[in-house]
């Protein structure tokens, strides 16, 4: 059933790589301002699912509506839609030849057509939001992993997206740097950003997520509020998976 009010509405999503079907029919609606956590074992298709939501992967079939617009409609301008869908990657993917401000300004200038001065102003404001106001002129190789990831978040945020996708944003970070990134994500959530997060940060999921989705083998096995998923999972598969995280 399509959900017209949802910020992200995925229906019947399938994706195959050659003969291997990675997504076997995903249905998920994410409401505005909701923070949905997607967990699951590696190979469960959660990253592929996320990457389908801005068409970094082309789905084999199904429907993906973002803010009411069908992405898989051939008339949809995907570059325009991607401005509304921020994405943060596991490996940051900052442009190494540009400083932090330059990383943020590129799309502001080339996609939104802002002037250099205007783009710089927005870039500095976004960097301030992630606590890196003084790093505008630093190059990625001069920043720690945590700082790089916060610049990457600022880069996505600067376009004022309607929804942000996080693909294992803390997996490549040293443990002591994870906190700074989670703090930024928490602040985004408090500011009302709609977020879909693929991550293994279970503690963060438990106290920040509105809903936790457990995926396995290309399907959503179970979903619900964190208390339910972490406290009383209905499915055996969810229980076995979560058992790995009971420290």
């Amino acid at each position: 059933m399509p959900d017209p009010a949802a910020m992200l509405d995925v229906a019947g999503l399938r994706k195959s790589f050659g003969d291997i079907e990675v997504l076997k029919g995903i249905d998920l609606a994410v409401q505005a301002q909701e923070l949905v956590f997607v967990i699951g074992p590696s190979g469960s298709g959660k990253s592929t699912f996320l990457r389908c939501c801005n068409l970094l992967e082309q789905p084999s079939e199904g429907s993906i509506r973002v803010d009411g617009v069908e992405l898989l409609d051939s008339k949809t301008d995907i570059n325009k839609m991607r401005q509304r869908i921020g994405m943060v990657f596991q490996s940051f993917n900052l442009y190494p030849h540009m400083n932090a401000a330059g990383n943020i300004m590129l799309a502001l200038r080339k996609v939104l057509g802002k002037s250099k001065a205007e783009a710089r102003e927005i870039a500095e404001a976004s960097l301030a939001r992630v606590g890196l106001a003084e790093k505008a002129d630093a190059y990625p190789n001069e920043l720690s992993g945590g700082q790089q990831q916060r610049v990457a978040i600022a880069r996505a945020m600067a376009l004022e997206p309607k929804i942000m996708l996080f693909d294992e944003p803390t997996s490549a970070l040293d443990p002591e740097l994870v906190g700074s990134v989670l703090t930024v994500m928490r602040e985004l959530r408090e500011a009302g950003m709609t977020m879909v997060v693929v991550s293994h940060e279970m503690r963060f999921a438990r106290d920040a997520a509105d809903r936790v989705v457990f995926m396995d083998d290309g399907l959503i096995v179970e979903q619900g509020d964190p208390a339910h998923i972490f406290g009383a999972p209905r499915h055996e598969r969810t229980r076995t998976f979560l058992a790995n995280f009971q420290a």
Binding site: N79, R82, I85, M87, A107, V111, L159
Partner: peptide, 25 residues
């Protein structure tokens, strides 16, 4: 590949990504 993906995810076209992100590197 992440460089392409990061640039495309912000709405840059293929040509813009090539010109501003890939070729300079």
């Amino acid at each position: 590949k992440g460089q392409w993906e990061a640039a495309r995810s912000t709405g840059l076209t293929f040509a813009q990504t090539l010109g501003h992100v890939i070729l300079p590197q």
